[in-house]
């Protein structure tokens, strides 16, 4: 059995006290223990930002790469060794800003992995500029007169881009988040969890209280997760009431399912020391 102590790193996170990232880390570790996955069989791939440090704070394999690019790294890690449980982790700037292109294409591919987005609606590590999910009108260092654009809607985008498990959770509700991560990992295919993550240093609008006053659980409200149109309707809810939970889930073949090359064994286990290209050379004579 995997215990919490097995995946604890010695170093403690250096996030700001009260940061929503602590709740996400706790839920992620709880989910790994609950799922009982050996830490050496987990790869957590992150981008840049406060969220990017997640792999350093727990003992699993990790790759803390460059800004906006965790999804392609994670995708190929999984395709190279599909015996691993693969997580991609990033922030709203990382995934919905600089990495938006990869976000959409990763969902189309339906590679079996779980993408956790720490969505704090602000740029934290660069000290408080607007993010793709900042609300219209929000005043930040880079938008002193207020954001002019409308925010990205990651849930609606995911529904239209082919993600097969789409959920939202809240860093202030570790129990809900842990259950969502467990369900996402169990789901065969690409899972998105957009996590409301209060930034206590730079976002003074979307605070723990702000979320607590607004969020409600879709599952408690009896939402049908198999209904794509209903999911889309729910994705548009914003304001006084904001839904969290699973919006949409569907089973469809994963990218890995479509690759006969890895049917027998993962790429990484295939011998390469005696590849014979004689017939290939004959083709060119």
């Amino acid at each position: 059995m995997v215990r919490m102590i097995d995946i604890n790193a010695i170093d403690k996170p250096n996030w700001c006290p009260g940061c929503g990232d602590f709740g996400i880390l706790l839920a992620l570790k709880g989910a790994i223990v609950e799922l009982n996955i050996e830490p050496e069989n987990i790869a957590i791939i992150s981008g840049i930002g406060c969220s990017g440090k997640v792999p350093h704070w727990l003992r699993t394999y990790g790759l803390h790469g460059i800004h906006g690019r965790p999804l392609p790294v994670a995708a190929a890690t999984r395709l190279s060794n599909h015996e691993l449980t693969v997580f991609a982790v990033g922030g709203d700037g990382d995934g919905y800003g600089i990495g938006m292109c990869h976000f959409i294409h990763a969902m189309r591919r339906n590679i079996d992995m779980t993408y956790i987005v720490h969505n704090n609606m602000i740029y934290g590590l660069t000290t408080g500029q607007t993010s793709p999910t900042s609300e219209k009108g929000m005043r930040t260092k880079s938008t002193p007169s207020g954001v002019i654009e409308v925010p990205v809607n990651p849930i609606a985008l995911a529904i239209s881009s082919g993600a097969t498990f789409i959920a939202r959770s809240f860093a202030g509700d570790v129990k809900h988040l842990q259950k969502t991560i467990v369900d996402a990992v169990k789901h065969r295919g690409f899972s998105l969890i957009d996590v409301f993550q209060p930034c206590v240093s730079f976002n003074h609008v979307n605070t723990y209280d702000w979320y607590k006053q607004r969020i409600y659980d879709l599952q408690a409200a009896g939402h049908n997760t198999g209904d794509k149109m209903a999911a889309f309707v729910k994705s548009q809810e914003w304001g006084e009431k904001i839904p969290i939970g699973v919006f949409y889930e569907v089973l469809s073949p994963t990218y890995e399912d479509e690759l006969p090359q890895i049917k027998e064994m993962p790429l990484v286990k295939q011998a390469i020391d005696n590849v014979d290209i004689s017939k290939l050379m004959d083709d060119f004579v």
Partner: peptide, 10 residues
């Protein structure tokens, strides 16, 4: 980045 992910995986 994919090639890096694959190289990282071995």
């Amino acid at each position: 980045n994919m090639a890096i992910g694959a190289g990282f995986a071995g």
